[in-house]
């Protein structure tokens, strides 16, 4: 950090360009006055942003995605807090098995998951429903939440909970007043990561949506299979701005590097 070598600097720059280039292209294209994908744009126009308003499908899909993201991220977080506390602090039989179970969705190819979920939801009669989607997204995002929450739980001094107990606090009070506030950066980080993962999930979702529950990524995907107008670019630009705004808010409150790099608690 103090003295980066030339090579390291060069690598960082190349990496940043590589990461940002697609975003720059998408945002650039969205401002074109023309009726086709054009980069660099020949002029600056908000034509394709206005076009979003004429396409309520996209707005409905975006609302659907936000609702799905909030519901899945919240449910996943609520499941992961007790799981992380048990895995992170306990010595009990089946601890490793529990952790492996929670992390296992990471190891299955998403296409396979999509097909499996399709079969499963059909059997349960939940195919295409909102809560069916929520269920699948929870399974997909739980590993992300668990890792972040686990990082802050393992950084926690177990004596802290004992100190509170010795001062007369019940187990519930210890959790509410001591443990939860101490791991909250990891919890919030996990929630945000989960929300974003759910918000742009395509591979699995495309198998299990129906027209009533179409999410934004699925809508964009089906749109570009039909036409190639710059509407996808302007919708993407709005989505990018939304994500960046979310990140900025979290960063202001908790410090993003601390959340994502995993220096969970002090």
């Amino acid at each position: 950090m103090i003295r980066n070598g030339l090579f390291a600097k060069l690598f960082s720059i190349v990496f940043a360009v590589f990461m940002l280039a697609p975003l720059v292209v998408v945002i650039g294209v969205s401002f074109t006055p023309e009726g086709f994908l054009e980069f660099p744009p020949s002029g600056i126009s908000l034509r394709w942003f206005r076009a979003i308003l004429d396409n309520p499908d996209f707005i409905e899909a975006a609302i659907m995605s936000v609702q799905l993201g909030v519901a899945s991220a919240t449910i996943a977080t609520v499941i992961c807090i007790p799981a992380a506390l048990a895995i992170g602090s306990g010595r009990f039989a089946g601890r490793d098995a529990l952790q492996a179970l929670f992390l296992s969705p990471l190891t299955v190819p998403t296409v396979v998951l999509g097909i499996a979920f399709l079969r499963f939801l059909s059997m349960m009669g939940l195919n295409g429903t909102f809560w069916g989607l929520v269920f699948c997204h929870v399974v997909i995002i739980v590993p992300f939440v668990l890792r972040l929450v686990l990082a802050s739980v393992t950084g926690l001094d177990p004596s802290i909970a004992r100190a509170a107990t010795s001062l007369g606090a019940s187990d519930w009070t210890v959790f509410r007043r001591i443990t939860l506030p101490a791991i909250i950066p990891g919890v919030v980080g996990g929630w945000v990561l989960a929300f974003i993962t759910s918000f742009d999930e395509l591979t699995v979702t495309v198998f299990i949506v129906n027209p009533a529950t179409t999410t934004l990524p699925v809508k964009l995907f089906s749109h570009i299979t039909q036409t190639t107008d710059p509407l996808v670019a302007s919708v993407s630009t709005v989505a990018i701005l939304f994500t960046v705004a979310l990140m900025l808010i979290v960063d202001r409150i908790y410090g993003l590097d601390r959340l994502l790099i995993g220096e969970g608690s002090r």
Partner: peptide
């Protein structure tokens, strides 16, 4: 139980509540 013993304990790591 531990919470009802009313003992004062100072831990090696101090175990202060960080927040």
């Amino acid at each position: 139980p531990a919470r009802a013993r009313g003992l004062g304990i100072v831990f090696q790591t101090y175990a202060l509540f960080p927040h």
